[in-house]
Amino acid sequence: MNITIVAGARPNFMKIAPIIEAIKQKKSEGFDLSFRLVHTGQHYDKNLSDTFFEELNIPFPDINLDVKSGSQAEQTAAIMIGFEKELKQHPTHLVLVVGDVTSTMACTIVAKKAGVKVAHVEAGIRSGDMNMPEEINRIVTDNLTDYFFTTSTHANTNLEKMGVSKNNIYFVGNVMIDTLLKNETRFKKPPVWEELNLQEKSYFVLTLHRPSNVDEEVQLKKLILQIAELGEKYPIIFPVHPRTQKFLKGLKLDFKNLHYMSPLGYLEFNYLVKHAKAVLTDSGGITEETTVMNVPCMTLRNSTERPETCDIGTNVLVGNDPEKISQAFYKLYSGHWKQGKAPELWDGKAAIRIVDHIMEIFKLL
């Protein structure tokens, strides 16, 4: 059996890494299972270097469609054209897509029109915010997908409300946490640790990249100013996303405790997260990691597609509301931040379950 695995952006590779490892393990046991890894090139990321793949033991893609940037329509069209050629040249039994980037949606459409079955990892998550391109990608993908691998019971419920048969929904857990738990002992101090003489639980980590936070100059300035003032007693480490960098230029947001830096590798960034006093972010994936590592997290968004990180995890939604942000800092400083725990099946074995289910579906077991 041949599986074509699609990755379009850096977080996708972190999600497919344990799945590829599980496929290789089955193949070594004598099962007829092989994969072809397709990188659409949706996000050009200089950090997708040899070091990145070696760091997480990810094989290099068999092909890079080299789509790069463009408008939503341009990028979607380019991915579809490139992936259609890929499927014609390399027929497959199953296309496996992950997450909610444009590549996820575009390759799902192409596969279905080519008569190929599709499996979606992280199916069923919803924010309810149709202003997010990712939400549209999720909905389109899940309306075409054949097999749904979910991270939570919330996702299961969302799919059932869509009319998806329970027989096609597989609650497997979270592959991002597979990668996190496998590499947690390998996290390493970034140079900034020694440069700033950072101490455990005595600094903040900040990340921003959502359009609602960074595209409007006044809003971005107001948000960073408040965070810098509320966290004035502590260093704030701010690895700046390339998108955010464009909007920061010229704002002159210089504060003694705010330290801008280039994006970090996986092992270094998660070292900072694990030992931080708290994380402030508008990233969904980081809220999953902080939940498992029991690190307080303030999400600078009004909605989340990962409600379990708020229900039983360490995450709190504050949006960019000054009052909610102030209240969250007060709760943190007063020592009353909630204790979280890992959601069900976030145990490092999601990829094994996914591959086992695929083999059952295609009657390889």
Score class of each variant (00 low, 15 high):
residue 187 F to M: 15
residue 115 G to H: 00
residue 167 N to C: 02
residue 55 E to D: 09
residue 114 A to W: 00
residue 92 T to F: 12
residue 179 T to M: 12
residue 160 E to Q: 10
residue 107 C to M: 07
residue 158 N to D: 13
residue 55 E to V: 03
residue 179 T to G: 11
residue 57 N to A: 15
residue 94 L to S: 00
residue 105 M to W: 02
residue 66 D to F: 05
residue 109 I to P: 04
residue 166 K to H: 15
residue 111 A to E: 01
residue 173 G to P: 07
residue 90 H to N: 15
residue 108 T to S: 11
residue 65 L to T: 09
residue 81 I to Y: 07
residue 93 H to Q: 03
residue 181 L to S: 08
residue 178 D to E: 06
residue 91 P to E: 07
residue 100 D to V: 11
residue 78 A to G: 05
residue 139 I to A: 13
residue 138 R to G: 04
residue 56 L to N: 09
residue 133 P to K: 08
residue 135 E to D: 02
residue 130 M to L: 15
residue 111 A to Q: 05
residue 183 N to Y: 05
residue 119 A to V: 03
residue 132 M to I: 10
residue 70 G to M: 02
residue 144 L to E: 12
residue 60 F to S: 14
residue 178 D to L: 08
residue 168 N to F: 02
residue 177 I to L: 14
residue 176 M to A: 11
residue 73 A to T: 06
residue 149 F to S: 03
residue 111 A to K: 00
residue 116 V to A: 08
residue 103 S to F: 04
residue 107 C to I: 05
residue 87 L to G: 02
residue 113 K to P: 09
residue 106 A to Y: 10
residue 136 I to Y: 07
residue 152 S to K: 06
residue 56 L to E: 02
residue 156 N to L: 01
residue 90 H to F: 15
residue 123 A to V: 01
residue 105 M to E: 02
residue 103 S to Y: 03
residue 132 M to R: 09
residue 59 P to D: 06
residue 66 D to S: 14
residue 172 V to T: 13
residue 59 P to I: 11
residue 181 L to I: 13
residue 133 P to E: 15
residue 131 N to P: 01
residue 140 V to P: 09
residue 84 E to P: 02
residue 155 A to Y: 05
residue 163 G to N: 10
residue 167 N to V: 04
residue 76 T to I: 12
residue 151 T to L: 14
residue 157 T to Q: 15
residue 182 K to N: 04
residue 139 I to Q: 12
residue 180 L to G: 01
residue 109 I to D: 12
residue 157 T to G: 06
residue 102 T to C: 03
residue 61 P to V: 01
residue 136 I to A: 13
residue 75 Q to K: 05
residue 173 G to V: 05
residue 63 I to S: 12
residue 66 D to L: 07
residue 116 V to P: 00
residue 113 K to E: 14
residue 113 K to L: 14
residue 120 H to N: 09
residue 127 S to E: 04
residue 71 S to Y: 00
residue 152 S to P: 12
residue 162 M to D: 15
residue 124 G to M: 04
residue 84 E to F: 00
residue 141 T to W: 01
residue 136 I to D: 14
residue 75 Q to W: 01
residue 147 Y to H: 13
residue 153 T to E: 12
residue 111 A to H: 00
residue 109 I to Q: 08
residue 160 E to G: 10
residue 176 M to W: 10
residue 54 E to G: 07
residue 150 T to P: 04
residue 116 V to L: 03
residue 124 G to V: 00
residue 145 T to P: 14
residue 61 P to I: 02
residue 180 L to K: 03
residue 126 R to I: 10
residue 149 F to P: 08
residue 134 E to T: 06
residue 69 S to C: 06
residue 95 V to A: 09
residue 158 N to E: 07
residue 114 A to S: 09
residue 140 V to G: 01
residue 169 I to Y: 08
residue 61 P to F: 03
residue 89 Q to E: 14
